Amino acid sequence: MSFSTKVKEEIAKHGNHSRHCQIAELLALLLATGEVVFDDGNVRLIMRPENTLIGDKICQLIDQLFDREIVYDRHVKYIEIHDDKMVEKVLQMVKLSDYVDYMEEDWLDEDELSGIDEDEIVYVSSRGVSLQNCHFPKQVIQKDCCKKAFVRGIFLATGSVNDPQKAYHFEIVVHNKEMAQAVQEVIRSFSLDAKIVKRKKYYVVYLKEGSMIVDILNLMEAYVSLMDMENVRILKDMRNDINRRVNCETANIKKTVNAARRQIEDIEYIERTKGLKYLNDSLRVLAEIRLEEPDANLSELGQMLNPPVSKSGVNHRLRKISSIANALREDNQI
């Protein structure tokens, strides 16, 4: 089972006790899956959920709000309400009835559709009119709790979230720009920087940062999934920290080895050309210790001197030795 499915199963079990939150969640599910069909003066409401989980959630909410038991038909994979009065009640509850009435004015039957470019028609299709074409009824989600319920519903219907072990990505896919902007506005009201991108004929509202995805899981009250993701993030952070430390230590070791190699080359050059007695006592003693202890770092070299010398003091003396060696090289080239 994918991580996205686990999140959806968890939030599908969430029960909104407040009626206004139930309405907000139903609004999200209707906008994502619903369409209206005008047939000889009658209006039918058809919902085409992607899977049983969504279908059962829609049925549960309608039962809670209207005391009307409906069933998701798993064979035809849609839910249909063909009672005009019931359809009107549902659409009025989620504040979509006015917009649907407006759509009906633009409705054309199958004969009238012939010869018309589909790109020029907003509200017409052979199956029905998608409720995503409605203007978004912001008055349904004024409270924060209702906004959270709406996000739960819209994610359940059209969202996905990547396995955090692979990548951090959360998205909600909708059919038009206005709907995408409405979803983005709801998510941004919780200080989450949701962005929008167009993907073929769809609009995608997405989050990419791990911390923001954790926050939206918390917002949707998917607490088990949130903990699973946090555990993955902790392990990732630990691995990254260990890798950074190893890389840093490796770089320091390489730097120390390269520096020691250059120091020994300088000392050996002085020894071949002038002899170590060419150096003053403090430099000569350090040069001899460096030749004896090629793997020692500066601090260790300083402790081997009598009296001991600080790391910066050792570095200063070695730089003097290097300057002397370079001067001898220049003299020998003349």
Rank of each mutant, 00 (worst) to 15 (best):
T5H: 09
K13L: 13
G15L: 04
N16Q: 07
S18P: 00
S18L: 15
H20P: 01
C21L: 00
L26D: 04
A28D: 04
A28H: 02
L29R: 10
L29A: 08
L31C: 08
D40I: 07
G41T: 10
N51W: 05
N51P: 05
D56N: 02
K57S: 02
Q60Y: 11
F66A: 07
V71D: 06
V71L: 11
R74Y: 01
H75P: 04
Y78Q: 15
I81H: 02
D83H: 03
D83F: 05
E88P: 02
K89W: 06
V90E: 00
Q92T: 14
Q92E: 07
V94C: 03
Y102M: 13
M103N: 08
E104L: 03
E112W: 01
G115R: 13
S125H: 07
S126C: 11
S130H: 06
P137S: 03
K138E: 05
Q139G: 00
D144E: 15
K147W: 00
K147D: 05
G153Y: 02
S160L: 00
D163M: 11
Y168P: 05
F170C: 01
I172R: 08
I172P: 05
V174K: 01
V174G: 09
L192V: 02
K198S: 05
R199D: 12
K208E: 02
G210K: 09
L219E: 02
L219Q: 10
A222N: 04
Y223R: 13
V224P: 11
M229Y: 11
E230G: 04
R233Y: 14
R233G: 09
R233L: 12
R244T: 06
R245M: 05
V246W: 01
E249F: 12
A251E: 07
I253E: 15
T256Y: 06
A260P: 03
R261S: 00
Q263M: 09
Q263N: 14
I264M: 05
I264N: 05
D266N: 15
R272V: 01
T273S: 14
L276D: 08
Y278F: 14
N280T: 13
L283R: 13
V285N: 15
V285R: 15
E293M: 15
E293C: 15
E293G: 06
E300W: 11
V309K: 08
V309M: 10
V314M: 01
A325Y: 13
A327K: 14
L328K: 07
D331T: 07
N332A: 12
I334K: 14
